[in-house]
Simulated assay, not measured.
Amino acid sequence: MTLLPLSDDAFLFPGAVNSLVFASDSGGALLVDTGLDESHARKLLRAVQDAGLTPSAVLNTHSHADHHGGNAFILKRFPELEIYAPPLEAAIIQHPVLEPLYLYGALPPKPLQSKFLLAPSSPARPLEAGTHTLGSVTLELLNVPGHAVQMFAVRRGGLLYAADALFGPDTLSKHPLTFCADSAQQKASAASLLHLEGVQLTVPGHGDATPDLAGLVRLNLDSLERTTQNVLNAVQAGAASTDTLLARVCTDLGIVMTNPGAVVLNRSVVSAHLKELLEAGRIEMTTEDNHLLFRAASA
C-alpha cells in the first residue's frame, strides 16, 4: 500500500484508522496516528520509506488504542522519535491500562485486555493546542474534545484532519452508537469545525476524505442527536439502570453485542448521553433498592 497525496506535502495512509503523513523540506515525515497494531504500523512505515521519507516525530490525536497502538513498533525502528499528544491522553498512552480501567470501572479482566482496549505503552510528551513545529513540520492543533476527553484535530493549509471529531458516513452507518466520552462536547466540537475558513479537504479518523466539510459535520451532528434521542426514549420506557438502558437502545437499533469489549464501549456511549440529558434537566438520576437508576424528569 502506498501513500495517497492530499497536497504537496501531506499524504494519507488509509485503513480502518487513517494515518496522516506530513513531509518536511528535509525529507522528514511527521506521522499522525499510528493505527491499531504492529500490522498497521509496519505497512505505514514501509509506505513512508518507499516515498523516500524518514519518520521525524509522531503525533497521537488522542489515546484510544486504535490511534496509538502502532507507536511501539515504530519506536523499535526509530527509538529516538518524540511522540506528542494532548496532556491527559499522553498519560494514557504511557499507561494504557487506564483505558480499559475507566471503561470497566476497575482493573480489567483478561477479556478486556485485547489490543482494541489495551495498546502497548509508549512515552508521550504532553502538548497544548496551538501552532507547533513537530519533526520540522509546522501545523495547527485544534481542541476537539468529546470523543475522547481531550483530542486534537490537525490543520495545515487547506487540509483538515478531523481525527475522531468527525466520522465518515459508512462508519456512522456501521456503528450507530458512535463512541464518545462527552456527547455534548462531541457535538460542540463537530459544530466548531464549521467555522473554519479555507478548508478544502477534510479527512476523518475513519472514512474517506471529502471536500464537503459542512456536509460531514451535519451528518455527524444528526447521528449524535439521534443517539441522544434513542437514549431518552429508553429512559422514558421506565426507570432503569445503565445496563438495562443499553440493552433497550441496542434492541431498538438492531445491535447485537457479542463480546465484553463491545458492551463496555457501548455502555460508555449511553453513559455519555445520559450525562448530557441529566445536565439538560430532561432526566433524573436516583438511587433505589441499591440500584442507580435513571428516569424521565418530573413534570
Rank of each mutant, 00 (worst) to 15 (best):
K110C: 10
S19Q: 05
N71E: 09
V144C: 06
P79S: 03
H147V: 10
E38R: 09
L36S: 11
L118T: 02
S121N: 04
L139S: 00
H132C: 06
S114R: 11
L118G: 02
F116A: 13
V137R: 00
V149W: 09
A119S: 08
L30H: 02
L53A: 04
H62I: 01
A29H: 09
L139F: 04
Q49D: 14
S63L: 05
P123H: 04
V21G: 06
P111D: 12
L45Q: 02
L98Q: 13
A65S: 14
S39T: 12
G146K: 02
A106D: 14
D50N: 14
L103S: 07
S63F: 15
D33G: 03
V144W: 02
S56I: 04
L141N: 01
I74S: 00
E82N: 12
K115Q: 15
F73P: 00
F73S: 00
G35R: 01
R77Y: 07
S24K: 05
A57V: 10
R77T: 13
L75D: 01
E128K: 13
F116V: 12
S26R: 14
V137T: 05
D37A: 08
L139Y: 00
I74G: 00
A119Y: 03
E80C: 10
F116P: 08
L141G: 01
I83F: 08
V97C: 11
T138P: 04
S39W: 13
A29L: 09
S63R: 03
A47Q: 06
I83S: 05
G52E: 07
